[in-house]
Amino acid sequence: MDEFKLDKSISKAIVDGTLKGYLQYLEERKSKKDSMNVSGAYAWTKGNHIDDQVSKIGQSHNVQFKIEKAGYTWEYLQFTVSENTEDYMVIVKNSRRVQKSFDDQKKKAKEDNYLVNLADINTDILKNSTQNFLVQPEQIQLELNDPEEVRAVLDGTPLNVTQKYSRFYIVTYEIDDETKFVESIKLTMPNRQTMNLELVKDLSYLIQDSEYEITSEDVEPIMNEKVSDQTIFSGDSNAFGYSIPEEEKEESGN
């Protein structure tokens, strides 16, 4: 997937922004837990903290952003990366991998949501790619960061994308259920034809290189929370499958 990779400095800015934003979110959870008798609703703010820091760190690395609106009140950031005279759209999403529990026909009947619609941007470029992908026995559910985003997914609300993009990327980050640490960050491209997230580059190695280190003390405020307490993920009918480049499978020895 070398042809679709982003510059390393841009990837590092996205990883650093994700980690710094998560740290700020944890600090806010601690502050509200100490000052309020009930503060669970602040779990919804994680995506805002991460998008905010990706936008701030990314600005010095050719990552631009703009605030758009969908539904009644849901505001989200569209990140734009400009390379080789082309513009690419990037969004950052918390994700979790679960075993597939649906058949393809059932999924196709309910696939009309904003993420799938945005995946149309990649149709031609992925169709013409010579890269072979291996489908994995799991699906990727993406976090919904706002009650209005939940409604947008359920209602099939389209997003307002006024700019012409050549590619659409989703950077997914996974938080370990037990440790609450960010355990992986990956650059993917959603494929409308296959309904898969195609792995472009595993950016997890940049977590260790980042100056933003998450400690056990940082995650203490949410250690006793279950995943279902912290967030809402898209269900089976609004999730993507997962594919990896064939050579990565071969390199792993599997």
Rank of each mutant, 00 (worst) to 15 (best):
S95R: 07
V98I: 14
Q53R: 08
M89K: 15
I222W: 02
L115F: 09
T157D: 07
H49D: 00
Q141L: 01
E27N: 13
E183P: 00
F181Y: 10
E250Y: 08
Y169T: 06
G235E: 02
E178A: 11
I67V: 12
Q139D: 08
L154G: 05
S31R: 14
E148R: 05
I91V: 15
V90W: 00
S60M: 10
G17M: 02
D2W: 05
S9I: 05
V98Y: 09
A152I: 10
R96K: 12
N122Y: 02
Y22R: 00
D209T: 10
D34C: 06
F240I: 03
A109M: 12
V161C: 05
L118H: 06
K201N: 15
I185K: 01
G235I: 01
N191H: 02
I185F: 00
Y173P: 00
V153N: 03
M1P: 15
D103I: 05
K33Y: 06
E246I: 12
K30Q: 04
E217K: 14
K127C: 03
R167G: 03
T162Q: 12
N48K: 10
D51F: 02
L206S: 02
R167V: 01
F65D: 06
A70T: 08
V116L: 04
K201C: 11
L203T: 04
Y114W: 06
L115S: 12
V63H: 00
E247G: 04
N128Y: 07
T73E: 09
E250W: 09
L26F: 02
G71D: 01
N254Y: 07
E250A: 11
P158Y: 02
D177H: 13
L77I: 13
Q99R: 10
D146V: 00
E86P: 00
E213P: 04
Q131C: 10
E111N: 13
S129H: 00
R167Q: 06
N145T: 11
K180F: 01
Q99C: 05
M223S: 14
S82E: 11
D87Y: 07
Q193G: 15
N37R: 09
P245W: 01
D120E: 15
Y212W: 14
K108I: 10
K164R: 13
Q163S: 13
G156L: 08
E75A: 05
V150C: 02
V98G: 06
Q136L: 08
L19G: 01
D218Q: 07
E68R: 13
T45V: 11
S237K: 14
Y205T: 11
G253L: 04
T162D: 11
Y88R: 06
V135H: 09
K186H: 05
V98Q: 14
T45A: 10
D7G: 07
D104N: 14
S95T: 07
Y169I: 14
S31Q: 12
E111T: 08
M223T: 14
V153Y: 02
Q78H: 09
L199N: 03
L126C: 03
